[in-house]
Structures are given as structure tokens and as C-alpha cells.
Write a protein that binds this DNA or RNA. Sequence first.
DNA 1: ATGGTTGACGATCAA
Length: 254
Amino acid sequence: MKITTWNVNSINVRLSHLAEFLKEEVPSVIGLQELKCSNDKFPLKEIEELGYHCEINGQPTYNGVALLSKTEIEDVVFDIPGYKCEEKRVIAGTIEGVRVINAYVPNGQSPESDKYQYKLNWLAAFTKYIEEVLKNYSQVIVIGDYNIAPTDDDVHHPETWQGKILCTDKEREAFLELLALGLLDGLRIEAQPKGLFTWWDYRQGGFEKNSGIRIDHLLLSRVLSRRFLSSAVHLNYRVMERPSDHAPVSVILK
DNA sequence: ATGGTTGACGATCAA
């Protein structure tokens, strides 16, 4: 079973890349973030024709998430239950007995911005939600764009990023609190070479210099992690013409 | 050098 997360930065601009990914990699499940479109503008027919069920939580212009699956998606839940938030950032469903939560965590803009505190509050509510999910399901995976580089090993130039958004102590503490619920960082289950990133700035030739950071994650419950086989960052989808600024990231399970 | 690139019901905002 292959599970993938991908911030596509506009589903309609990236549809041809997604179609190629689905045909080439054939993930069992893929969580998409930053659809940047309302539900009625989501290319549902095109994706269904590729053999995928779709559950969509769209929003015009900003945010928007979706779950795509080869098999039926059951017990779909939108957003963070009980948390007042107009933005469409979360969608969850059960596929082949695995509870998949797909999230697009707020960016936060800068530590001085009001959006920074909003991000920290959002993460606190999200962590409470995941704590509840873990009480009800044993096979759980929490995937998405976390907008947090967990450690300096996840940053190409730690000294440049020191104290900057995506790398502040409070964001990293919030990430550790999620892990403390009993989740394992899917790309850190096995040792990896240095310089393993998932996002590169469009500006200044960021990808060509591998001037990236690792902010897209797949977190596995302990029970699910017993099925872990391997993980991968699909760098070839960041090289294509007009790519997303994020690469797809996958874990493969037994 | 306070730049630079991309996307959206754009005339700026968010990333």
C-alpha cells in the first residue's frame, strides 16, 4: 500500500503532473493540498477516469485539500471537528482500514505576524483532534504540508533559516507534541542521506542548488509503522516544466 | 541588492 502527500499549488495547473504521477506511481491513497479552487472547479471527472475515488474540501483562491484513493473512502470528516476555522485545510477518511488525515497547516508568514499565533493555535487544535483520532483508530497516518521543518537537518542552510518562519522553536515544539501522541516521522524511520527535502523556493534557482527544506510529512501510528517498508521523495516531479514548488512524498506499507 | 517566482474570480495577497 503506497500513501502519498503532495502540495500541488493549484490542482488545475498541475493536473497533467498529477495524472502522470497516478499512472506511473499508482498510489493507493494520495492527499493533495493547496487545490486553490472551489469544489465545483475541481477536475473530478478527469481524476475519476484515472481510476480514483475523490473526496474534496475545496475553497476558492486559497487552501483546499483532497483525498484520492484507488478503493472506497469511508467515514469522511471535513475540517477539525469543533474548531471554528473558515479555511479548508483538513480532510480525513478511512481506506482499507487505515485512517488517513490529510492537512494543510497554516504557513504563519513570519514570527512577527498575527498569522504566526494563528498557526500555533491551529496546531494546538489539530493536535487535540489527532489525539482523539488515535483513541478511535489503531492504523493512523497523518499526512500533509505541515509548514514546519522539524530539525536543522531538514534545512539546507540552517544558519539562514535560524528563527525564521517554518523553523522557529515554537513550531518545532508543536511538531514534537504531535509525535509525542505516538506518531513516527515516516521519512525518518530509516536513515537517510543528508539534504532530503520536499520544498524548494521557485526563486533563485532553489531546486537546482538543492536549497530546500523538509516540510511535507507522513506521520504513522505505532501500529501502522509495523507495516512500514520504505519511503521516497519523488524529485522528478519537481524537475518538470511548470512544477509545484513541493515534490510528492510517499511511504510504502506491507 | 529588502530583490527573486508562482498562482488566483488578481488590480494585490499569499506562499
